[in-house]
């Protein structure tokens, strides 16, 4: 029996150590591309850790958003960074130099400090910049706050069931059967509404910095085009399934939206373009749909004597379904638009 109990412990230990090692490698890698790939691997392992902790909702979100979409965004940013660096190397005093300088300044902590950091590290290795005694002293000084933090976390009083009982008692009235969805969309609807608004604001920020890069007729990969023709309808189906299943099992708008966004990224990479007549108000309508529907639902219930975002009994289920559908469409469109980067 003892060996059976040890096996999960061994798996957990390996996962935890892999996580720490990947995090350290991602932070310390001087090569940005390598750092991004390590970050994606970190997200996948983190997803497994969440599954081991029985938090399947967070695992789905971590893998789809943390590893998948964020990884794609980082890779897209890296590609832009490199092309911007190559252009500024050629000519620095142009009209566009303004924008590039801006992006370079944004990239400064990442791209510029890393080489100097490694340079100082190699100097350390030769022992010319910092004596070994000073480095040990610094490490000891850093250990003091670490030990303090550890002690504080250890002393934290955690109520054993937390809010679980409270959520379970009110689940009936929430309109859904899955506690995580009930918390996200009903009990703590503010948070989710504001998260949607933050995503929209991020896109507004990207759009106000530049217009979308003009894409000519690049050489297209036939294999990628074939795969995306196969996968795109499937991903839309999976997104719809995730929204629907979110009412009683792990799933929901953010996971479904990230699958839709990934479908958009895949279509973009395989050469598909949004038709020009759809990039005007139709695109903008889809982008704001989630926030608008969510906020309107929250306001309309006030006319029936309910508090803001407090759905009357019996109406919660259709209200949440409408919000989830609208939010899924918006999240998918916003994530894909963030990947494309720039105002159409």
């Amino acid at each position: 029996m003892a060996s059976l109990n040890l096996l999960p412990l061994a798996i957990d230990l390996v996962l935890a150590l892999t996580l720490l090692w990947l995090a350290w490698r991602a932070l310390s890698s001087p090569d940005l591309f390598r750092a991004v790939v390590l970050f994606i691997a970190l997200g996948l392992v983190l997803g497994l850790v969440w599954v081991r902790l029985d938090a399947v909702d967070i695992a789905l979100a971590e893998i789809a958003l943390g590893a998948g979409v964020t990884g794609a965004l980082l890779l897209a940013a890296l590609a832009k960074l490199q092309s911007a660096e190559a252009e500024t190397a050629d000519a620095s005093t142009e009209q566009e130099g303004d924008w590039q300088g801006c992006s370079q300044a944004l990239a400064e902590p990442d791209a510029k400090s890393k080489p100097t950091l490694t340079a100082s590290a190699t100097m350390d290795a030769t022992g010319s910049a910092m004596p070994i005694a000073l480095r040990i002293l610094l490490a000891l000084l850093l250990l003091v706050p670490l030990a303090g933090l550890g002690w504080v976390v250890w002393q934290l009083w955690l109520p054993a069931p937390g809010l679980t009982d409270l959520v379970a008692a009110r689940l009936e009235a929430s309109g859904v059967a899955h506690p995580v969805t009930a918390v996200l969309l009903n009990f703590r609807g503010y948070d989710t509404l504001l998260e949607l608004a933050v995503l929209l604001l991020a896109l507004l920020g990207v759009w106000s910095l530049s217009s979308a890069p003009h894409l000519g007729d690049e050489e297209q990969e036939p294999a990628l085009a074939a795969l995306s023709r196969l996968l795109a309808p499937l991903m839309i189906l999976v997104a719809a399934y995730l929204v629907w299943v979110g009412a009683h099992a792990p799933g929901g708008a953010f996971q479904a939206g990230s699958v839709l966004g990934a479908a958009g990224v895949l279509l973009r990479l395989s050469g598909w373009r949004v038709p020009p007549r759809a990039t005007g108000w139709p695109l903008r309508l889809v982008l704001v749909l989630g926030v608008v529907v969510f906020a309107c639902m929250g306001l309309v219930v006030m006319a029936f004597g309910q508090p803001l975002l407090g759905y009357p009994p019996g109406w919660a289920k259709p209200a949440l379904l409408a919000i989830e559908l609208a939010a899924t469409l918006s999240i998918g469109a916003i994530l894909a638009a963030l990947f494309i980067g720039g105002r159409p």
Binding site: E221, A223, L224, A226, L227, L230, L231, L234
Partner: peptide
């Protein structure tokens, strides 16, 4: 089956 399709395509992309 999905992984077969994805990995075959990714392999093709990296190789080309």
């Amino acid at each position: 089956l999905l992984l077969l399709a994805a990995s075959a395509t990714a392999g093709q992309l990296v190789a080309s």
